[in-house]
């Protein structure tokens, strides 16, 4: 589960290619059952982004859930809450700021994902060319600097917007949580 966090992204991409490629076991299964093709399609780029971003997000969320005061959960149980009840009434609301941080982290990782994507689904214009791949391509093209600069600005704006939004939300939630 945490393997994609530590593996070089290119290796993850290569493993995805083997498993989810047209001849890969999982690739064939998905194609036969739901007509879903990953290799060299935008769906594959999404899968790569997910595989790379998800462990990071889950890790952050898990930490924030585990950080909730066990004693409050115990108190809720003595007041008649079952396990699920305790989770939804106490654990989840108290871990929302961490949850949010996890989502932003996952988003950022997915946005920046390069190695696994390019290995798995290549860099096909209009299909699998992600923002980082597009920037990379333009920097390799003579006269592409201006276009690359515009994309860089978009990337910066997107990242900043996500960061600011999460920060604002987290603050608002934090005051709501602790009064």
């Amino acid at each position: 589960m945490h393997l994609p966090l530590v593996l070089p992204p290119v290796v993850t991409g290569y493993l995805l290619l083997i498993a989810f490629g047209r001849r890969g076991i999982l690739g064939q299964t998905f194609e036969n059952c739901c007509g879903l093709v990953f290799s060299f399609r935008w769906t594959g780029a999404a899968l790569a982004a997910g595989v790379m971003g998800f462990p990071l997000m889950v890790r952050a969320i898990r930490l924030s859930i585990e950080a909730v005061d066990r004693r409050l959960e115990d108190a809720a149980a003595t007041l008649g809450s079952g396990r699920l009840g305790v989770f939804f009434a106490v654990t989840l609301p108290l871990s929302v700021p961490g949850l949010l941080a996890g989502v932003v982290l996952g988003f950022a990782k997915a946005l920046g994902e390069f190695g696994a994507t390019i290995t798995f689904v290549s860099n096909i214009p209009g299909e699998t060319r992600t923002l980082p791949a597009a920037i990379y391509t333009l920097t390799q093209t003579p006269g592409g600097d201006a276009a690359a600069g515009r994309l860089v600005l978009i990337a910066v704006a997107l990242s900043l917007a996500a960061l600011v939004a999460s920060e604002l939300l987290a603050r608002r939630l934090a005051t709501r949580i602790s009064g």
Binding site: R71, L72, A75, A76, G85, P93, R176
Partner: peptide, 20 residues
Amino acid sequence: LPPRKRRVAVVFQESRLFPH
């Protein structure tokens, strides 16, 4: 019996009110 079915309420030393 799980705590919720025991109908035993506890007043803890540190009050343990739900902050949210």
